[in-house]
Simulated assay, not measured.
Amino acid sequence: MIYIKKQPCPSCLENYKSKRISSFKHMSLEEPNVKQELRISLLIEQGYVCAYCGSKIDETESIIEHIKCRQNYPELQLEYTNLICSCRGGSNKRSSNPQYPLHCDAHKGADDIPISPLTENCQELFVYDENGEIHDNDNHDAKKTIEVLNLNNKILQNRRKAAIAAYKYLNESDVNWAEELQKIYDNQEHHFKEFCFVLEYYIRNYKLQHY
């Protein structure tokens, strides 16, 4: 999970909310350009990675996610502080593979999560091993969040493991790890590396401590 420091609400959403009829559903059906502008604002804010799992996402392969779901919190459906971007969580692969594990928004549904990407220390509450497994570090809220979002399914584990492998066998003496950390979040083009926060954890805890 990546920490997102929310920016001011974009003008496209502010202008839309001032209309007589405004809802997330109405915006999706009647104002698709506003929704797409909002999506891009969210993507830039979080470096074009899924706020929950860290997978790379873009304008077409992402959804606008409500941290507090619309069904239970309709008053928050257009609140910018309740909006992030998520991957599709495997829902687009279920048609060809019914056993494909759902995760992130697709698994969360209407459930609440005790830790969200807006929780200031959220990245410190999850730990990762070299096999890509995520651990809750005996934190009850972290454990529940992992379960609700299904962040420890084998697909995500293997993808995190592959991302870590790019760093695992590098010779510590040949790498400037401070520079590598900066590259992970190099936001010149508003794009972070896939699984950026996992890579940061791995470098800080498996490489820098021996450097």
Rank of each mutant, 00 (worst) to 15 (best):
H26T: 09
G54K: 00
L208Y: 10
F195I: 01
C53S: 13
N139V: 07
S95G: 08
E147T: 11
N205V: 12
F24Y: 15
D129I: 04
G90M: 06
I2D: 05
N158H: 14
A51F: 06
Y201W: 15
H190Q: 01
D138C: 01
D186G: 02
N131W: 02
A163W: 00
L29E: 15
R159C: 03
E79C: 09
Q71C: 04
S91R: 13
E179D: 12
E133R: 14
K68C: 03
I155R: 14
D136V: 07
A165R: 07
D174S: 13
I63M: 02
L125S: 05
N158T: 12
D129G: 08
K143M: 06
L13E: 11
I164Q: 03
E30T: 07
Y185K: 11
F197A: 08
L199G: 00
K17R: 15
P32Q: 04
E200G: 10
G109P: 05
V127T: 15
H135T: 10
A178W: 04
P10W: 08
L13R: 03
E14K: 15
D138W: 05
E172M: 11
E120W: 01
N137M: 11
A178M: 10
N139G: 00
L181S: 01
T119Q: 08
K93Y: 14
F195E: 09
Q77C: 11
K93Q: 14
H26V: 14
S62Y: 12
Y206S: 04
R159M: 13
L181G: 00
S11G: 03
G89M: 12
N153M: 06
C12W: 10
G109L: 08
D186M: 11
D58G: 05
E31T: 10
E180N: 02
I164S: 08
D105K: 08
K35F: 07
E179C: 00
S41V: 03
K154C: 05
C50S: 06
C104H: 09
N150C: 10
N158Y: 09
L149Y: 09
A163Q: 05
E133L: 14
Y128Q: 03
F197Q: 14
N121V: 05
K161A: 13
N152S: 11
N150S: 14
V127E: 09
E179G: 06
D105C: 01
A106G: 00
K6S: 08
C85D: 11
P101W: 08
Q71E: 15
N82A: 05
R160I: 10
Y201V: 12
N82D: 07
Q123Y: 03
